[in-house]
Amino acid sequence: MAAPLKGWAKHNARQNELARDDLGGKGWVRGHVLNPDGSVGARRSAMAPGPGGLISGGVVVSVRMEGLPRIRAMLERAEKLSPAAVARALNRTAERARTDITRALVKQTGLKFGRIRAATSLWRASAGSLQAEIKAKGGFTSLKEFGARKTAKGVSAAPWGRRQVFDGTFIVRRYGGHVYKREGRRRFPIQKLYGPAIPVEMVKGQSLTAFNRAVQTELPKRLEHELGRIFGR
């Protein structure tokens, strides 16, 4: 007896069934991830490891920071006086960084603010663990989610915030209105197309820049505020 399918294999098997029902009783579907320039890249199954095809990514605001001597010195001083105060500063900084990252990802991915916000979470620092972490989970996002619409030459969509027409692509309404492309001249196989993944994008480009900027500007202010409270200023 065959083992039950899980994750991407289960999803792909279901897509196969739907494709056979809808497109003539034979054929198969594969998932491919688009590159930022619109070309078809690696297969989704190869780029989305983990249970259910989920990817995870994170950025950390920690008391052990390198390359920022002023901030590190302030952290070390505050840590000796009050670890709880440092934790508060780290958490306020992480909250600001999360908001800035989300705004950057709206432009970087082409997804809505609420969608990105829902994919991220904040692990808060405490007096016993002086590290705050912003995490994101999720898979590569179906091209359908980027305002996909049919045109004479193919489907128009805006992954990475740039609208373009993907020649030779088509939408199959019967199973979710996702976007597909044939791999060759024959009717099958066909590829389901995906855009960016939030966890992948979060740790690079404008998002990473926004994180670093938030840490460098917000953390010193929060530490000064907490030190001022300790010394009664």
Rank of each mutant, 00 (worst) to 15 (best):
R222S: 06
Q216L: 06
Q131W: 01
A148D: 02
H11D: 12
E95H: 08
P69G: 13
A78K: 00
V203H: 02
A210P: 10
L18Y: 11
E66W: 07
E76V: 13
A9S: 15
S121R: 15
T151D: 05
I171W: 10
G7D: 08
L227W: 01
G114L: 12
Q108V: 04
V60R: 11
V33I: 15
R103N: 14
T93D: 02
L5G: 05
A94C: 06
K107S: 14
R20L: 03
L193P: 06
M47T: 13
T217A: 09
V60P: 02
D167Y: 13
T93H: 03
A73R: 14
E201M: 15
L54D: 01
A136F: 05
R185T: 09
K150Y: 01
V165M: 08
F170E: 04
T141D: 08
R30M: 07
G7L: 07
A125E: 02
W160K: 08
Q108H: 03
H225C: 04
V203S: 12
P69H: 11
Q191L: 15
V215D: 02
T209Y: 00
R233P: 00
L130C: 01
A2Q: 13
P83K: 02
L105T: 09
K192E: 15
G138R: 08
E95G: 14
G139R: 11
E17Q: 12
Y180Q: 10
V60I: 13
A158Q: 13
T151M: 06
L227F: 03
Q164G: 15
P196M: 11
A9M: 14
E66H: 12
I171A: 11
H11A: 14
D22A: 09
R149P: 00
K26E: 12
E66L: 12
G184I: 00
S156A: 15
P49M: 08
M47D: 10
R64Q: 12
K204E: 14
H178F: 13
A210Y: 11
R115G: 02
H32K: 15
A46W: 03
A210F: 09
E218Q: 14
F146Q: 04
N12S: 15
H225S: 13
G67R: 07
R163M: 09
T217Y: 02
L105H: 11
R213P: 03
M47V: 14
R187N: 09
A9Y: 13
G41D: 02
H32N: 12
R162W: 05
K10S: 12
K26H: 13
A97V: 04
N12T: 15
I55S: 05
E183W: 06
I116K: 08
R222D: 04
S207H: 10
R88Q: 01
M65T: 11
W28M: 10
R92Y: 03
T109G: 03
N91A: 00
Q108M: 06
G228E: 07
L130I: 01
R77A: 10
A119S: 15
L219R: 03
E218M: 12
L130W: 01
R233T: 05
E201W: 06
D100Y: 00
G177W: 07
G7R: 04
L111G: 06
I116D: 05
W28H: 11
S142R: 14
